[in-house]
Structure formats: C-alpha cells, structure tokens
Write a protein that binds this DNA or RNA. Sequence first.
DNA 1: CTGAAAGCGCTTACAG
DNA 2: CTGAAAGCGCTTACAG
Lengths: 345, 345
Amino acid sequence: MTANTPRPTLQSIARQLGLHVSTVSRVLNGPEGEGARAASGETGERIRRLAAELGYRPNPHATSLRTQRSNLIGVMVPRLSDVVLATIYEGIEEAAAELRLSTFVTNTWDRPETQRARTQMILDRRVDGLVFGDAHADGRLLDEVAARGTKFVLVNRRAGDYPAVTCDDYLGGRLVADHLLGLGHENVAVIAGPPYASTGLDRAAGFADRYREAGIALPAERIVPSGFDTAGGRAAAQRLLSAPARPTALFAVNDFTAIGAAGAARDHGLRMGEDIAIAGFNDIPLAAELPVPLTSVRSDMHEMGRRAARLLAGIIAGEGPVTSERLAPTLVVRSSTCRPPDSPT
Amino acid sequence: MTANTPRPTLQSIARQLGLHVSTVSRVLNGPEGEGARAASGETGERIRRLAAELGYRPNPHATSLRTQRSNLIGVMVPRLSDVVLATIYEGIEEAAAELRLSTFVTNTWDRPETQRARTQMILDRRVDGLVFGDAHADGRLLDEVAARGTKFVLVNRRAGDYPAVTCDDYLGGRLVADHLLGLGHENVAVIAGPPYASTGLDRAAGFADRYREAGIALPAERIVPSGFDTAGGRAAAQRLLSAPARPTALFAVNDFTAIGAAGAARDHGLRMGEDIAIAGFNDIPLAAELPVPLTSVRSDMHEMGRRAARLLAGIIAGEGPVTSERLAPTLVVRSSTCRPPDSPT
DNA sequence: CTGAAAGCGCTTACAG
DNA sequence: CTGAAAGCGCTTACAG
C-alpha cells in the first residue's frame, strides 16, 4: 500500500468486481452466519481475495455511525505513572484488544472536577462503556453517570453497589494482621491511605477487625490517613513514630506508602526488619528488590484489569446478571516484618 | 440528560428551531470566522442556547467520516507499567487533550511482531498520526510506516532521521562520566541496556567517550548489554563484579537496572555508596527514596511527552519544517556515588 | 445468493 | 446570513 493509493472501500471493491456494495459488505463484514454462507459461493472467494490483495480495512467511523456502536471504551485512572494502575490498565487493554475493543485512558488525579470533565470528554467520544479505576467512596459522579444510562464497571476500588472487580482488600488486611499477631506484635498502627478510596478503607478495616478479634482494639489515632505516595507514607509514619508508646509494627495499605514509612523509620534510627516491622500492599515488583525486601499482600492487578474489561464487555453486550468479582489476595512474607524488638526468642 | 432522551443532533436542533441543519452546523461547529459572524445574529444566539440546554455534543464519528480527520493519535510503548514510559505518556495525553486530540496507547513489549500487529490495529482505527515510544535502532518498521505516508514522531528513543523528541542521552552519559572521574574512579563499567534502544546506546557512548578523552579507554567487556529491568541489571552487575579487577563504579543506563545492580553488589558484600559507586538514569521518583539514595540523570519525561504530542500535531497540521528536539538532562548527585574505596581522602 | 435503497450525523461548496 | 444538496463509508431490512 503506497502513500498515493487511496484506501480501498467497500464501494471501490464492489465497483472493481461489478458487484453491489451490500454484497461486499455482507461477505467482508457481515455476521458470522451470512458470511459463512456467502463463503461457499465463488463470488465470496473473489471478494475476499481482492480485499486481501488491496489490504481492505473497514472504516470504524462509518461503522460506528451506522451501528451506533463504537467498540470503544474509556478508562479513568488516578494516575498512570502509579505502577498499580498502569498494571491494571495493561490488563484492561489486553483483554479489550482480544474482544476487539479499543481503549482511551486518562488521568483524573482523584480530583472530582477533573474526573467529571474527563468523563464528559470520554463520553463525547461516544464510547460504549467506561471503566472507573478512580471511584470515590461517595459515588456521586457514578450516580450521575448511571443516571444517564451509561454502562460502566469499577476496578480496583468499589463504590455503592456498582459492578466492580476488586481485590478482597478486607481479607488482605486480615492476612497482614494474622501475620503480625503471629509474630507477637500487640502495639501496631495502620497508614490507611486517603479516606475516599475503598482499597485503603477496606484494608484498614480488615486489619483492625482481626486485631479486635484477638482482643486488641486499635485506638483511632493508630489508624492515620495518608496519601498513596511515599511522601504520604513518610509523613504518616513520622507522626506515628514520634508518639509516646511507639508501635512495633506498621501496616501501610500500599507499597509506596510503606517505602515512605521505611524512610521515616530510618530517620528515627530504626532499621526496618530489625527494630520495626513494616508491611505493605500490592507487592509491586520493586518490593522484592529493596535492600530489606518488603512483606506485602499480592493481588493480581493484571488479571483484575482483564476481568474488568470482560465484565464491561458483558454489560455492553447485555448479557445476563452482572456480578462483582473479588480476587483473593495472598500474603508474601519477606524480611521487613520481624518480631517485636523486645520479644523473647 | 436522562437515559431515555435520545441525544440531540444538528438535525434535531434545526428542526426544533425551524432552521436548516447547515445553519446550525455553521454556528455550532463551524470555523472560527463563520462562527463569529454567525454569532452576531440573533439566530446564532437561539441555536447556541438550545444546544447548551440540550447538552448537544457533536458526534465525532460523523465528523471524522465527513472530514477524513479523526483527531485521534496512537501511542506505542514497550510497556506502560514502566514508570518512565507511563510518565512520558502522561505528558503526551495531557498535551493531546489540550489540542483536542484523543489518544490510544498500547504495549508492544519491544517485540517486532507485536509492534507490527499493534501498529496495524491502531492504523485500522484511522488515527491521524502516531507516537512511537518503542523505536528500534534498525528502524525497519518505521520505514514501512513512513512508506505508507503515515505521520508519526518518535519519543524517548530516536532512530534514523525520523522526527524525535528525546533526552540528550549522549550528554547525560558524559555527565555521569564527568562525575565519576571527578571522584577518582578509573576502573568503571557500564550496564548498557538492550542493543536496539538508542537511549542505552547513546548514554553508554557519551560515557565511554568522556572517559576516552580523559585517557581511559573502556575495554569492550566493561560495556555489557542488559535488559531494562532490575533482573537485567542484577545479572549484568553479577558478571562485572565477579571479574578479576572489579570495577569501583558502575553506570547503569536506567534506574531499575541500577537498583538491580545494587542488589548484586549486596550479594557480593559491597555496600553501595561506600564500597562501590552506582549511578542510574531517569531519576524516577523512587531514586531519592531508596535507603541509599541513587545518583541519577534527570530528564523531564513529562515534558518530553508533551513536546512529542505537539510536534506530531504540527506535522498533522502540515506546519513548516519538522525538527527533532533534544532535552538537556541534569545530573542529580546523591549518596550512591562515593569515591573509590582505596582513594586518598 | 445478490441488488437497491435508506440513513447514521456531520461538513462544505454552491446558490440566493 | 441561510438553505438545499451531495457525500463521507458503512449496515440492514426488504425484495427478488
């Protein structure tokens, strides 16, 4: 295909073959049934041969205009340079491509105005559906989007009763609590992430519930909100480690927060994995590569993305009842979580 | 806008106002000049008012079909879960949105077959242009794409004479060499990345040239290829540190590779920043957060992405001569680069 | 199995 | 300043 040759169209192919455009359409892009039948005919063979020779590719804008289906989906994420979201998006994009869906992805920075503006921008592109990876617990924007009849699913974070594919964050929090309890930690704290994200909320809740079941109630000041980045983790840990009865173990609801917390611990002269235990969440690839490898909860983010794409595709296709999915996490124990310093060996 | 109301179209607006669709089109979506003139008329006011009230949004598929312009661009990256590429993409997406362009982004894993297949998939979507963030030095695929008359730019990696926005990687390599020479390192090695990426090649070349100018020629076995991830850095460093006259400093052409190298150093009982100097490239956010903060070359990846988007937009618009851009890097010195262990203080 | 027709929602050169 | 017409490239119900 050289630069000057105009792209072939159904029309141009029909003309060259002395056929009608509708015939060519049915053979090349028609539904399976018809295409298959047409396949038998010798005409079908001629059409297919010429189309292949010319490198015919249907014009998706024409198809979308005609069918009112764009085969496009939009994906909203807080920020793609966060490896957690990037990995989820990779899963979405991969599964979407398998389903012949193309994706637009955009950052919303977790800011409501940006979320609203970018959602509108994506809807203006006439996507068939949306994946929200930035849902806020209040669900206000989602309510509006749902009211318009727009199809969507949530991924990573849940909100209300909207269909969502998430990690079982509550269970993940419990797993960490189990582990720290087993090591003998009774004086612990949680760096809980921002208050609008179900991930942090559920992880913290699972952790606190498990401790409560063990007879240890975490006081409110031991569950501190934070950003999801290293700076947030550092600041939160700084506060916790300056308190009177310093905790012997920290559960950060995200690995970056945990890395920031490790920095704060260092500033306090504490060695992670020896003087203080720190656990994170997500098991990002770097967790295992740190000088003191980080104990973390592994969730299959790529698979989460794949499932979200498929769930959305099902909804778009109008398939049966929609049920949210919750992936089981596993705890990966590494050397960052030691026993309490004064514990008997 | 409720679920059951059909979306307004130019037609529906024209009908409600007793006007012709072409009039409405000119007022709502027409070129600046006409729109402005139409603005004065009282009719224009009525049209605009109703459109706003109904929440009219032009159907981009219809517009694209008619104008043969999709306002869509495609972005090819090795993998989005690499924070370097994710950050570049954020810049592309941000600038593209400002230019009213929407972007498709896809992973190609640096595999030629995938690159080819995904490029075709993106072109099938009738994008107006492409940004390649995964160019291979041989430029084979790019030659094919160029031969079709497709418009594109490269970002991060350059190839042939195709328009590209890159970091001045050669200069970056020189900066690191300057720094290590200043510290007194004469026995050094480079972990150079894969042989198909201009980034690693140029960084290694700048480094080696600067050392040569200082009278120190790096033997070939001191410039070892690697992957761009921690595993690759670890393996390469493992080899280098097992050699007879062990280098006192390592330049890894990427921060992940440097982190992997630090792991290998630890395995050899070497403390980074005390027994061995290690420098990276890109200054990813984590570099400053490591227990031993990493010396690295900073390149403004977000800005690189923004410029690539604008360069492509210029090419699509058919504006003047196209010139590649090369952003100046800066060296960020941190504690990972110490003097050679046996150097006089 | 193939053809003819209508129409998805827009833009734009041509009249008036 | 506004209208009428043509057409971008497809799909699909209706005939034959």
